Simulated assay, not measured.
Amino acid sequence: MTPYDAPSPQAAPRNPAALMDGYGRTVTYLRLSVTDRCDLRCVYCMSEHMTFLPKVEVLTLEELDRLASAFIGLGVTKLRITGGEPLVRKGMMGLIQGLSRHLASGALEELTLTTNGTQLTQFAQGLAAAGVRRINVSLDTLKPDLFRKLTRGGDLAKVVAGIEAAQAAGLRVKLNAVALKDDNAAELPDLIRWAHGRDLDVTLIETMPMGEIEADRTDQYLSLTTLRSELESFWTLKDLPLSTGGPARYVEVAETGGRLGFITPMSHNFCEACNRVRLTCTGTLHSCLGQDDASDLRAVIRGGASDAELEDAIRLAIDGKPKGHDFLIARSSAPAVARHMSTTGG
């Protein structure tokens, strides 16, 4: 791969027509996966022995920049960098610094990322310098042994140090925790207390049937509707009229003073207000996380498409965005969606 040279600072060309799907929802949020690789192997996200993509199939940094900039030019105002683990991708900070030109121009309102936290001691300062103001860190447990089990070998202390480095750099940090009935369900109140005591928001997420893994997700599924009821037996949860452009429903925990989010793709469909799409590191656009829809934008740009032709391809893909996902936790021989979350982009 040739070294990445970010384009000179300038605004993405603005297209006056909103990027709207066939159901009248305006798309303003792009989640951009930059790699399918990760330095952890979380049991609900990856198979233990993953086969990763060959380099030729992965978009170059220049291609990632072009595609992201095209979406920004069509009205996307929030860009989240994802993976795999985005910070293990060589040259990643150069890409983020390049994309920050859209923050400077005002075309982009927010540039952020989701990370497992293992690389933050190295990159937190650089992220802040590039205009990143908040990040999501995936963390399901505060027990070192359980963390090692869930991540297949990860070091909890490294992640906690990364969170501290991010806060020291001025980044706002939100924890994402997947609720697992047999592993961390009993610990979640302690995780929430720990986070709120450190000025960290927390969002709980139901496990989703994506990709073949060794375990049966039906054994680990925990309804957050049930969990919320349990939390309300000893905490006061006040619903907040808050939207961050995502599917979470937020409450304030009176006893801790912190904010808690619930993402419930299984027990409560949140598709009616969906404003997001996902672009994988191979250039495949998924307009719905829970459907096998796919549009190959890599073929478009590698086929020599002009900017106008690329925009047309994006609009066509968005127009076909499904009305909603079909996630269902049930005992069956296959997951609801064949691709792994690590491939799709978390």
Rank of each mutant, 00 (worst) to 15 (best):
K78L: 08
L64G: 08
G258F: 01
A129D: 14
R276V: 09
D182C: 13
L67P: 09
A12K: 00
V34K: 12
R302T: 09
I72G: 01
W194N: 07
K90D: 06
L200Y: 01
R31T: 13
Y29L: 08
R66E: 05
S287N: 12
A107S: 15
L285Y: 04
T236I: 12
L150R: 09
M93L: 14
P54K: 06
R14G: 02
L237K: 04
G283L: 01
R133Y: 06
R331F: 02
T203W: 04
P7T: 12
R80N: 11
D293I: 00
R217W: 08
D201V: 03
A157M: 09
L260S: 03
P13W: 04
A124L: 05
G75A: 07
A168G: 11
T26H: 04
G98M: 10
L142T: 08
D312F: 14
R14A: 14
G83A: 09
E214T: 07
L61F: 14
C271L: 04
M266Y: 13
D199R: 14
L40W: 13
Q10M: 12
R101P: 08
T118A: 07
Y4S: 02
C38M: 05
E255W: 08
A179G: 05
G131Q: 10
G117Y: 03
E212D: 07
P7V: 12
M50V: 06
G131L: 10
A317S: 10
K181D: 04
A273P: 03
V27E: 05
A336W: 09
S138P: 09
